[in-house]
């Protein structure tokens, strides 16, 4: 049985003519985002180089650095401490029921301390600071860009990469490990409070059990991992802020993209750094 289906020539010709344009459209829809991504990385690299070059030139902006240490460090402390405390309490409550089920209740302090110091403290601090500080830097520098304040700094013969970017990046790098220590401390403290409410245990005993199996390297490498988090948050916040375009809408976009990108890169860096720490500090 033959199927005599006749397709009008006009339609066939149209399809053939449209085929290359469909391929081109598909290719460009794949290529354009990839191209933008590569461009963004390239510009970030140039920005990092300019900041690095500016950082070694005198004068050093000590006063602005102090202001940023306060802005990024002291003012983030309550939020970081609260986040650390909440995570500590939740971890304690969640772990307790599981450990009791397996008859390993006495392992709770060690499990809690290990978990907070190794992973929860650094990553929670990184994400909380990227939310608070990343948005702040992105919005502040973005607003300075659209109101020509960055141009005014440059026109005054002052390098904005040093005055604005380097001070903020350095403050993030210096403050992240300290904030992580605060988050770790609050996490352990509130982990103990949550534990002792269910089954009273002295703080000294809790700490003794918690830290009995840990060494200095357990503590050092994860805490200093946050130096990289600080570098990421500061660098991306400043970069996104200083390249802002398009008025107030652009400022909003810079603030949002600073948070999204710095959080994303903090998580990616965490995966890579955890692997590296496991290799170098087994």
């Amino acid at each position: 049985m033959s199927h005599n289906v006749s397709i009008p020539h006009r339609l066939i010709n149209q399809d053939v003519a449209q085929a290359p344009s469909v391929v081109r459209a598909t290719f460009s829809s794949l290529w354009n985002p990839f191209n933008s991504f590569l461009e963004w990385f390239g510009e970030l690299g140039i920005f990092a180089w300019q900041v690095m070059r500016a950082s070694v030139r005198r004068p050093f902006e000590g006063r602005e650095l102090m202001r940023q240490l306060d802005e990024i460090g002291s003012k983030s402390l309550p939020l970081v401490a609260l986040a650390g405390a909440a995570i500590g309490a939740v971890l304690s409550l969640e772990s307790r029921s599981s450990l009791v089920r397996f008859g390993a209740k006495s392992m709770l302090p060690a499990a809690l301390v290990f978990s907070i110091i190794h992973e929860t403290g650094p990553i929670v601090t990184g994400l909380v600071v990227s939310g608070r500080v990343g948005a702040g830097i992105g919005a502040e520098l973005g607003s300075m860009r659209v109101t020509e304040q960055i141009d005014a700094i440059e026109a005054s013969g002052v390098n904005p990469y040093k005055y604005l970017a380097f001070t903020r990046i350095l403050a993030c790098v210096l403050m992240l490990p300290l904030l992580t220590l605060a988050a770790d401390f609050c996490g352990v403290l509130f982990g103990w409070i949550a534990d002792t409410l269910a089954d009273p245990i002295s703080f000294t005993k809790f700490i003794h059990r918690g830290f009995s199996g840990t060494s200095f390297s357990d503590f050092l490498a994860p805490t200093f991992r946050t130096v990289v988090f600080g570098l990421i948050i500061g660098m991306i916040g400043c970069f996104q802020g200083m390249r802002t375009q398009g008025g107030t809408a652009g400022v909003g976009l810079s603030a949002t993209s600073s948070v999204v990108l710095s959080s994303l890169f903090v998580i990616l860096a965490d995966v890579i750094l955890v692997k590296m720490i496991l290799v170098f500090f087994p």
Partner: peptide, 14 residues
């Protein structure tokens, strides 16, 4: 730049 003073359109005060 030290020899040039620039007044921006919106003053651009920090």
């Amino acid at each position: 730049r030290k020899k040039i003073g620039f007044l921006f359109q919106g003053a651009a005060l920090y």
